[in-house]
């Protein structure tokens, strides 16, 4: 079964200069292990390849039931001098939620 990440989780983007933070929270805490398994830093990096030029670091936060991605060198990043329409990179959160996941029968 193929679903978009949007079906399983919500996401908030933040920005510090040309670094973007993307935190991902499963709607159902029980899906956290699935996200840990499927939503690797490499997958996020590949999905956002045209928007993130640098490293993507993933922090696992089981206590908060969250995965936190710190994306370096956001393309056209830097709120102040960017030529992009969304200079902050705030829409990256929704871009990440469009990532497709191929799931086996989950339950």
């Amino acid at each position: 079964m193929r679903v978009l990440l949007h079906e399983l989780a919500h996401c908030r983007a933040g920005d510090k200069g040309n670094t973007a933070t993307l935190s991902v929270f499963p709607y159902d805490d029980a899906d956290y292990p699935l996200l840990v398994r499927e939503l690797t830093a490499d997958r996020v990096r590949a999905h956002l390849a045209s928007h993130v030029g640098g490293e993507v670091v993933r922090y696992e936060l089981p206590n908060l039931v969250a995965l936190h991605f710190v994306c370096h060198q956001v393309v056209d990043g830097g709120v102040t001098t960017s030529l992009a329409l969304d200079t902050h990179g705030k829409t990256l959160s929704s871009r990440l939620l469009s990532l497709p996941l191929d799931l086996e029968d989950r339950r």
Binding site: R12, G14, L64
Partner: peptide, 13 residues
Amino acid sequence: VREQLLYEITDPG
């Protein structure tokens, strides 16, 4: 609260 907690945090630790 969790969304806001991690907002703009570049190192949660």
